[in-house]
Design a binder for these strands. Structure first.
Lengths: 127, 127, 127, 127
DNA sequence: GTGGTCTAGACCACG
DNA sequence: GTGGTCTAGACCACG
């Protein structure tokens, strides 16, 4: 999978990496049960600090995406995390802001749905 | 309008305030042409520093939401900002990550659309 | 002469007014020896505070552009101010910054001269 | 590079600093890709507050001159900003006023061009 | 009365 | 070690 970090972004590298792995899983590029590259390898490939990859892996473990084994490294969980109440709450908060901003800028419900639908089908394409 | 800041949150106070004002505009609680509270008043009401409110107002000015007049204070612009290409790009990036995470957690297209629709109609209720 | 104030601008109103009067003189719309509108009239026409017009007139008097007579009001001096050393110094400072910024943004000497020439001939047109 | 602030000036310190950095770039004293001093170092050298330097750096980032990296500090962008329409508009406004004032004071087109040419060639001397 | 600027000092996140 | 955020407090310009 291709990981692309924007070094000039305001979003911290560990957060960018986390998002890309989550999007990689949604696209089926990383499948449940599959091993992720080792911390050493991934940090070397991307050209970032070893601790940064480690931080990302640990956050993804906390969120229920990965298991980390001292010998076998990181692996995508067989069962992906489900949508707990707390998660739904955060999702709605984020969406409320995004939708408010979009609505203010003249994007109506149909335009917004169309954008979401395009993204969803992009993820469903290649499983 | 009721502003509610989570002081424990990782999201900076000025950013939380910005989002709440944008949501307030979407809900019609702040209307185009309407004056916002002065930085001193709002900072006093919320219990945060004057400079933090000032920062939020200036960011919203940069984004095209407000005009700031040295003697009359801040006012919602008569014409809200429109959806420039750069904005659409950022919106799609944010949505891609949110949708990927949601999809992984078993939220399908229909569930997601339903959530968005609920939020949209919440904003459309005229106040 | 048409005075146009941008009330949303960061430039103070008295400064905008000063610049417009100086440009009006350069265009020949106000001629040496000519009376300017009274403070009361001008402030009423533009819709700004009486003190603001007063401030502008006093600055222009300081700079050698106007004479102010209690009974006859403000008048453009018969002899416009000349380019003293101090003025030349300030002009060069301003131009140095403008040219540096323009050069950095890819505007070369010819483009810049062309812009200046256009402006000069605009002022020379209608005397 | 030598930074010189006039503490008595009406021009805010952060604005003076911004102009000097832009002139430094035009002169080639700061080259694309080059790192600027840290906010702490520069503020200490000049004898101003750290936040004032920070404000300047952030404005220059907004204008497309710098990138700011939380750990590496500020760097002149590899690609300097280009002359967008909005910029050209502001430049013409500024020049119109400067030229009007100069013309009124007896500086003709040739004198003015000569001054601009001198400044341009000053910037073109490679350092 | 309003925002703008500047200072001083603190703690934090990133890597 | 770097910038980011936040607070507290001061003085000033505008009108």
């Amino acid at each position: 999978m291709l990981i692309k970090i924007e070094f000039e972004s305001d979003i911290p590298i560990y957060e960018q990496l986390k998002r890309q792995i989550i999007m990689g899983i949604a696209k089926g590029e990383f499948k449940p049960g599959e091993e992720l590259p080792s911390v050493r390898q991934l940090s070397g490939d991307i050209g970032i600090n070893l601790h940064t990859v480690n931080k990302t892996y640990n956050i993804l473990k906390e969120e229920g995406y990965l298991t980390i084994n001292r010998r076998k490294g990181a692996m995508v969980k067989d069962e992906l995390p489900d949508a707990k109440e707390e998660y739904i709450h955060i999702l709605k908060d984020e969406l409320s802001y995004l939708i408010a901003d979009a609505k203010n800028r003249g994007i109506n419900m149909e335009d917004f749905s169309k954008i979401c639908l395009d993204i969803y089908s992009e993820f469903e394409k290649e499983v």
